[in-house]
């Protein structure tokens, strides 16, 4: 296995006529907990959503384990997406389904259409879901409806759902912005642990620089769709911060 998990080259993206990302490039190694920081509106979410093409990039290249993602068809894209777990800022759970069904939904890409229509998941999938729910500390909530959980618990369901894919990359979009500071650190810690255990590289958006410094191994700074900084947390000095958050009062 090469030591590049994800390679993004000259990525450009936008909505309508408005260009958001301007030639962003970086590489993520298999062990990385890779953070993208920057003021809100910088294009962090757009960047992360380009990796699994929830947003269609307008140019550049995205390679996951050496395979190009941007020029493949819809069917191949679905197969590629199975290998990319995603954790969302607003959790994006299916509120009316049980916690277990939410986690099992992470397996949809591997489940036949007819089976999934009747929620007939494989025995080993259910076993994995239960094990994952134990791992994220939700053993007692398996049969609850997702909308009955607290924010922190919901994000744990989101984490379990992403892990359910047995992904080779985790995309994480501001996992803690909707959470209290204390819960936020717990959730960040959990994501780092499970990713380490499974050796999954993580690409994570964080608005909160402190969290990025504490949890991440590598940081890029984005401002107005342009990469302004790249380095280790230790390299993120005053000047770099000024570059990234030029217009924002810290």
């Amino acid at each position: 296995m090469s030591n590049i998990a994800l390679e993004v080259r000259d990525l450009c993206a936008g909505y309508g006529d408005r260009q958001i990302l301007k030639n962003v490039s970086f590489t993520v190694s298999p062990d990385d907990f890779f953070a993208i920081i920057g003021p809100s509106g910088a294009g962090k979410s757009t960047l992360i959503r380009c990796v699994n093409r929830l947003v269609e990039p307008t140019g550049g290249s995205v390679r996951l384990n050496g395979e190009e993602i941007l020029d493949i068809g819809q069917r191949a894209l679905r197969l590629a997406r199975r290998n990319i777990g995603m954790i969302f800022q607003e959790f994006n759970l299916i509120e009316r389904l049980s916690v277990l069904d939410n986690v099992l939904a992470g397996r949809l890409g591997h489940t036949g259409t007819t089976r999934s229509l009747f929620r007939m998941f494989r025995r080993e999938d259910i076993a994995q879901a239960l094990t994952l729910l134990d791992r994220v500390g939700l053993t007692d909530h398996v049969h609850k409806r997702a909308d009955r959980l607290s924010g922190g618990q919901r994000q744990r369901v989101g984490i379990a759902r992403a892990l359910m894919q047995n992904p080779r990359l985790l995309l994480v979009d501001e996992p803690t912005s909707a959470l209290d500071p204390k819960i936020a650190r717990e959730v960040m810690g959990l994501i780092r642990e499970v990713a380490r255990e499974r050796r999954i590289p993580v690409l994570c958006n964080i608005h909160d620089v402190k969290l990025a410094l504490d949890f991440c191994s590598h940081i890029i700074g984005l401002q107005d769709g342009v990469k302004k900084f790249e380095g280790r947390p230790a390299d993120l000095n005053e000047k770099a911060m000024h570059d990234i958050y030029a217009l924002e009062v810290l």
Binding site: R119, E124, Q128
Partner: peptide
């Protein structure tokens, strides 16, 4: 693939059986 790495635990098996039974009933 992960299923293989799971330890065969009778407690887990029992939970799965209960879930499978409940799902059959609902269905």
């Amino acid at each position: 693939m992960t299923a293989a790495t799971l330890e065969p635990s009778s407690a887990l098996d029992r939970r799965i059986d209960a879930i499978a039974r409940e799902r059959r009933t609902t269905r």
